[in-house]
Design a binder for these strands. Structure first.
Lengths: 342, 342
DNA sequence: CTGAAAGCGCTAACAA
DNA sequence: TTGTTAGCGCTTTCAG
């Protein structure tokens, strides 16, 4: 009796070769789509493969090719709620979709703390992946250094804090926020508040800087009491909005640095009895194409997500292939989409 | 000049051996914590390892050990919003935390459609992982079959639809829902509605069955107009609640099959001017320990998530180690937590 | 177009 | 306690 009990020992190249009546090399060629194989040989191999349900052993293959055909998307989620940020989901879906048509595999790696980040670093250094896309980089993340030093291809989703020579893809957060503030100022608002993102994330910092630049350009003062820090979540946005209303009841506009926060802010405004946009104009920042599904429709700074995710993988693949010397980066333009809220 | 330009060729066991003045076998023993090594040898190896920044090549190791020390957590997310379900995040965090103390790596794999599921199946069959935890199994998912047939250790998070002999961990969804309905009936409610989960997910089905059983046990009729299907999201819950109120304005209680939906339902009730719990009593189902953070506090069926995630990995590891013949499963008890809403 | 042979870096008997 | 040796399954020159 054959072994039905133990874990099925998967067939090897040799077994296929024997069954097909050819050499291992020929089987390998067929499996790897080499053109230099006669139709008969190819056919024999193919049917042997099918019959044996042969699947190549990746470990053996990678050992010699030094390629795993796998890339990792690393999610830093020190905060509980980051996982539910639609921006994350959008990036994951986008990258996943981009890779779906290729023969590359995508694995998601999550880190909740520094220890787990180091574990991920080890995982990568051990040769499990060909490259890494890193999301949600905070100011003190050790992973970029670890990976860079190990020479592992790396692309950041979001501009790094320091000016290191690392590839990244980012939206023009500063430009978009500046445009939003300028727009509010141009439409006659005089007390324009902002709810920022977390200021240990570069998107939070850049969007705040853009808001300040926009006000300055319009000749308006940047008032400290018109600034509240949020955490990119809906609940955080509502809380920040409430705090702003408490602190500066006279505000007549607010630039909210992310759409989930804007949804929360809208709710807080409604509960406070403020009309939007008559009393208070609201402009959000759309990280995940949710603004249009919003109720009421939200004026937002829109990012071209559909451009950004392919770019992310493109830059990574270019590094993996070894094309182009320098770490290449791209900043994607944003644009303001006017809707009923402003 | 040494190669600073090309991808750093990582040092091998032999190089360490040479530098430490021992054989490869000894280095291997040290690296694998074998006790049978003299302190001097160990020390020499250790410093050589440090000096060379040696990291073992996993492919080579796995090729011989037939182990990757990696398990996959597969997320099925055919629906856009599943990613933001706090239940997912909780399971991911829990499993991740459980594994953090071990030397096992966790990778997340996401599938948006059948094609991607098959890609994951291939990934697993190629030997990338030692085992798989599968979340959010829908009625027609091909992955369980693929993995089972390939003999890859598998644990489902949630009971399978058919009665196949596969390991799984689940909450007592039926029992919990039954208790919720019975509780509402016992407190004098007579028109108890329910917002179900998606009925192509077993949790949705089981919670509906429990609700029906609870009503039946209390001698109450199960009215079709008191049932609305939701999708486990907040928006879906609000929509379903609105539909119920339209269809059966006389309802005096509602069992909502997930907490995000319950949050939406509470909002819809508030907007409809119904008081909770005076006019309408609400009981939710807590998939992610969010109920207590709710505002207002939500009466819910609570699941012991802190038991379930370790169990998930425990059952998987037991299969990987080959301990215990049959696929072992566990159903975790739930309990009703009374709060202000019911 | 095909096969023989030499490794990829590591572990695991088996001897010493 | 240590070293020697033989592979793990695959790709890839290099001859034929």
């Amino acid at each position: 009796m054959t072994d039905t009990t133990s874990r099925a020992a998967s067939p090897t190249l040799d077994e296929v070769a024997v069954l097909a009546g050819v050499s291992r090399a020929t089987v390998s060629r067929v499996v790897n789509d080499s053109p230099k194989v006669s139709p008969e040989a190819r056919q024999a191999v193919l049917s042997a493969v099918a019959q044996l349900r042969y699947v190549p052993n990746r470990m053996a293959r990678s050992l010699v090719t030094r390629r795993t055909d796998t890339v990792a998307l690393v999610l830093n989620e020190p905060n509980t709620q980051v996982f539910s940020d639609p921006f994350f989901a959008s990036i994951v879906r986008g990258v996943s979709a981009t890779l779906a048509d290729t023969d590359l595999n995508l694995v998601l790696l999550t880190a909740q703390d520094e220890r787990e980040q180091e574990k991920i670093g080890r995982y990568a250094r051990q040769g499990h992946v060909d490259g890494v896309i890193l999301m949600s980089v905070h100011s003190d993340d050790p992973l970029p250094d670890i990976l860079e030093e190990a020479g592992i291809p790396l692309v950041l989703c979001g501009r790094p804090f320091d000016d290191r020579a690392v590839a990244y893809v980012d939206a023009d957060n500063r430009g978009g926020a500046r445009e939003a503030a300028a727009y509010l100022a141009a439409s006659g608002r005089r007390r324009i508040a902002t709810i920022t993102g977390p200021l240990d994330m570069i998107a939070g910092v850049d969007r705040l800087a853009g808001y300040q630049a926009g006000l300055a350009a319009a000749g308006q003062e940047v008032r400290a009491d018109l600034l509240a820090e949020g955490d990119f979540t809906e609940v955080g946005g509502a809380r920040a909005m409430a705090a702003l209303l408490e602190r500066a009841p006279d505000l007549d506009a607010v630039f909210v640095a992310s759409d989930p926060m804007a949804v929360g802010a809208l709710r807080a405004l409604r509960e406070a009895g403020r009309r939007v946009p008559e009393d208070v104009a609201v402009v959000g920042f759309d990280d995940a194409a949710v603004a249009e599904r919003c109720d009421p429709p939200l004026t937002t700074v829109a990012q071209p997500l559909t451009d950004m995710t392919p770019l992310l993988t493109e830059l990574l693949l270019r590094q993996i292939e070894g094309v182009g010397e320098q770490a290449e980066s791209r900043v994607c333009r944003t644009h303001l989409v006017r809707r009923a809220s402003a």
